[in-house]
Structure formats: C-alpha cells, structure tokens
C-alpha cells in the first residue's frame, strides 16, 4: 500500500477526541463552545479528505483520460 494508512488512524483519533471534548464541554455547560470544537474538527478532516480526493481525480485523469 503506497499510501499513508496512518491518516486513517488520524481521522479516527480526531473523531474520538472531538467526541470526548464535546462531551466534557457539554457537561461544563458550554454548549456553543462544544459545537465550535466539533465544527473545527470536521473542517480539519474535511480538508484532509479534499486533498486526497484531488489526488484521486488527478490519478484517474492520468490513467484513463490521458492525451486530453
């Protein structure tokens, strides 16, 4: 597998930690803060996935749609 499989564990870790922080902040009574944390984590993961999707589309273009 040429690709960095570590990113999978990174995403899973980010998700678990964000869920934890969300729970703790909710217990402290700071609801809106908890939502901001979730949104931030979501943005980070979405950025990673967007980079990878760009890579995927470039690969498909190079493999299938060459000379265009």
């Amino acid at each position: 597998m040429p690709y960095n499989v570590d990113a999978v564990f990174q995403i899973a870790g980010i998700g678990i930690i964000v869920a934890m922080i969300h729970t703790v902040l909710k217990q402290m009574g700071k609801e809106d803060f908890a939502h901001w944390v979730t949104l931030f984590g979501f943005g980070v993961v979405l950025f990673m996935i967007a980079m990878l999707i760009q890579d995927l589309f470039q690969t498909i273009k190079n493999v299938f749609l060459f000379r265009s």
Binding site: M1, Y3, A7, V45, L56
Partner: peptide, 20 residues
Amino acid sequence: QKPVFAFLLATFTGIIIFIA
C-alpha cells in the same frame, strides 16, 4: 459518538483503496 466522522473515515478508506 460522531456519525459524520465515521462517514468521512469510510470515504477516506475508499479513496485510499482506489488509489492503491
């Protein structure tokens, strides 16, 4: 805990397998 992250993780894995 967070269904959104689960969905993103599944997407990520699909992309990794496809690129491989």
